[in-house]
Design a protein around this nucleic acid. Structure first.
Length: 476
DNA sequence: TTTTGAGTTGTTCGA
DNA sequence: GTCGAACAACTCAAA
């Protein structure tokens, strides 16, 4: 190892040391300066928000500990900071793992060019997708638009994802630059400490992610295929925030599931969910406007309801539909929402309230610890029916039916809507139908302790069907 | 080029 | 209570 040469490893959405191609290659031949730069010069609706910033704060702390406190921290323009660090450290290589959000792609191309001009070799790696978007195309070279062929014919027929790389041992870490900030300096935690509640639900960082994966493989994966639909059952991996921040790679999860001794159908189902993450990133790569514009043009003509009062009730979990309110409160309290309930609450906002899907997308983005531009926008386009491979317009979730079906003993709903906890199962999802005596016994006064429904479920369903139907017959 | 089969996650109604 | 059909038509993917 040449004494005088150094490499910079620029950590971004890959806050881990295991199976981290950039880190793995950076430490091979040189002493390495590990760097994180908070680039919040990109305001606008998709700037990193509350719960994500909380997660990032703790994840950086974890990474810094794993690096014996040697992680250099900066805030500002990565371009300027990296050029400065190259100069002061004498680094002749910069390594990073690729990101796929449109603004990051543009930025990274620019930075790569700048660094090259300064005589630095830039090595970018694939750290966060099983298959990178340009690698998956139809025979005619154009991108897929439907999940099933994308996954089956595109991904599964392509070369298999790489096996996870080991965590390198014996890395030589360059001294911490004196101008490095502390993680606290980044100001990721809110001044009003609402974030304390998240501590009860999550541990950020690589170690915690690996433990969560292991727990899932041992006690959640068996029965995943059917159990993943029930929000009170432990059959989801809860890896989404860790995958977003790269505390764990999808490769690690993929091969660990494959090696587990659990039923094949559950393993395949879990892998295909990782496939959906790939598909979302793929769609965003090919349609950079996906977060803001419907993929189906005809939806530009759709008339949405600009009802801010109902939007606020939805956000606060006060719609009067218990399963919807449970989901929205889970989101607010824990920075997470179970996948089944994301669909129910999403369908309710878009179809029953006829509120523009971007309002829901924005709220989720602000509240989710796993807020991911690709996954979030693809999900909202799917539930709204305006994506390319989307739910049919007549698929409108009934919050009463969904609650009874997927929270049959009501434990999820009672946990997050405790004011209904004494209501018997029969009326838990439709308290307005309960006899006065039943309500009284349960200590509920509708309109006082729990709201009446904000809309009638059948009327609003028919209104949505009509509005969506009209899109298909523009003449009428 | 044409044809054919298929497409994450639902609800309601009527037999 | 259970089951199948209707809810629409379109676009995509692949042969």
């Amino acid at each position: 190892m040449a004494e005088s040469t150094a490499a910079i490893c620029w950590f971004r959405q890959d806050l881990r040391l295991s199976d981290n191609p950039a880190w793995y290659h950076a430490v091979q031949t040189r002493k390495v300066l590990p760097v994180y730069i908070l680039d919040d010069l990109h305001p606008g609706p998709w700037a990193m928000a509350g719960a994500s910033r909380w997660w990032l704060h703790h994840s950086l702390q974890s990474l810094n500990r794993a690096l014996d406190g040697q992680l250099a921290i900066f805030r500002g323009s990565p371009e300027k900071i990296l050029l400065h660090l190259v100069e002061t450290s004498g680094a002749d290589h910069v390594h990073w793992n690729r990101c796929y959000e449109p603004w990051r792609i543009k930025r990274d191309i620019r930075i790569k060019e700048q660094l090259r001009k300064s005589g630095v070799r830039v090595c970018s790696h694939n750290g966060s997708l099983l298959w990178e978007p340009p690698d998956i195309n139809k025979r005619d070279g154009s991108p897929y638009k439907v999940f099933t062929p994308f996954y089956r014919n595109g991904c599964l027929q392509a070369p298999a994802p790489r096996h996870p790389l080991p965590k390198p041992t014996g890395a030589t870490i360059a001294p911490l630059p004196p101008e490095s900030l502390t993680i606290e300096d980044l100001g990721l935690l809110p001044s009003v400490r609402w974030d304390k509640k998240l501590d009860h639900h999550w541990t950020a960082g690589e170690q915690a992610a690996l433990i969560r994966l292991e727990t899932f493989l041992q006690s959640g994966l068996d029965g995943y295929k059917s159990g993943r639909d029930y929000p009170s059952r432990p059959h989801v991996s809860r890896l989404s925030p860790s995958l977003h921040f790269g505390e764990i790679s999808p490769h690690t999860a993929w091969y660990a599931a494959e090696k587990s001794r659990q039923p094949l159908e559950d393993i395949e189902c879990f892998k295909s969910e990782l496939g959906w993450r790939e598909f979302s990133n793929y769609l965003l790569y090919h349609a950079p406007h996906m977060p803001d514009k419907p993929l189906q043009k005809k939806f530009l003509n759709f008339t949405w309801n600009e009802d801010t009062q109902n939007l606020e009730r939805w956000q606060q979990g006060l719609t009067g539909y218990p399963i919807v309110d449970a989901g929205m409160r889970e989101l607010w309290q824990t920075g997470y929402m179970h996948n089944r309930v994301r669909m129910i609450t999403g369908s309710f906002l878009v179809k029953n309230l006829l509120i523009h899907w971007t309002h829901g997308e924005k709220w989720f983005h602000d509240c989710l610890a796993d807020a991911d531009l690709a996954c979030n926008s693809a999900g909202w386009q799917w539930v709204s029916g305006c994506g390319v491979d989307a739910a049919p317009y007549f698929r409108i979730f009934n919050p009463v039916t969904q609650g009874r079906k997927f929270d049959p003993d009501g434990s999820y709903t009672r946990r997050f809507v405790p004011e209904l906890s004494k209501l018997p199962d029969t009326f838990l999802f439709n308290p307005w139908d309960a006899p006065p005596m039943t309500l009284e016994k349960a200590g509920i006064v509708l309109g006082v302790t729990y709201p009446y429904p904000v809309v009638d479920i059948h009327l609003s369903r028919n209104r949505a069907l009509e509005a969506y139907r009209a899109l298909n017959s523009p003449g009428s």
